[in-house]
Amino acid sequence: MKENKDTIDKSLKRKHKLQTKDVKVFYDDFMAIKGIDMNIRANKITAFIGPSGCGKSTFLRLFNRMNDYIDGFRMEGEILIDGENIYKKKVNVEQLRKQVGMVFQKPNPFPKSIYENVAYGLKIQGIKDKSYLKDKVEDSLKQVGLWNEVKEDINKSALALSGGQQQRLCIARTLAVEPSIILMDEPTSALDPISTAKIEELIYELKEKYTIVIVTHNMQQAGRISDYTAFFYMGELIEYDKSKKLFTNPEKKQTENYITGRFG
């Protein structure tokens, strides 16, 4: 009987890469997340949608503990990755962030060369082997389809790239440290449509190897690329379902209003 329960737990763990249990977030006295339970599946793309200020970024940034440095931030509840609570005292935050990569809204390459940007995550882990680094940089840039565009300029400043290229560089930089989860906070909102299309395509390819959670305010985008979609409103998870279902036949009135553009 007990054995049986263990195996069920294990398979659930494999399926549910990320779990949150009654998570509440406070900024000083303001409650930004009001008790969310959620399971996010491995090797799928999960989209977070909702009107701005509803807590999408706050919630997303819990998974790599990026909120830790914010003054007045406080969290209650549990967040599990592969069944382990990442807010336990002895958790190594740097190790966690190596495993959970993040791509931000505005491309934010370091003011260094393209090479240094991609090699950064490996170098800070103490890897010095030049040929290994070179291979890894090339490999990562190839994964995001940037290699052919920049292979000549690999030692030039990353700031010279276009916005779309910069964002793909930031994704490559994240891939280089081989995370298992990638968090993306509106990664295309600062980009033109062509760059956006390229990045969407890339995200779609990446889900084979990674669990991806993406915040977007673009419903078409959520519909196009995500397997699951979660709709947030005022710090609460209103509805969470397969994207197809949520966009065509939502259970809740609020969700329907939002996706049909009646508010937000």
């Binding site: 990026m66 740097e94 966690l96 931000f104 505005k106 370091f110 800070i124 930031c170 930089r173 440290v177």
Partner: peptide
């Protein structure tokens, strides 16, 4: 800019 700090922390920098 704070975005650079976030990038560095996001990569697992101390």
């Amino acid at each position: 800019p704070n975005s650079l700090r976030e990038a560095a922390y996001g990569m697992g920098s101390t």
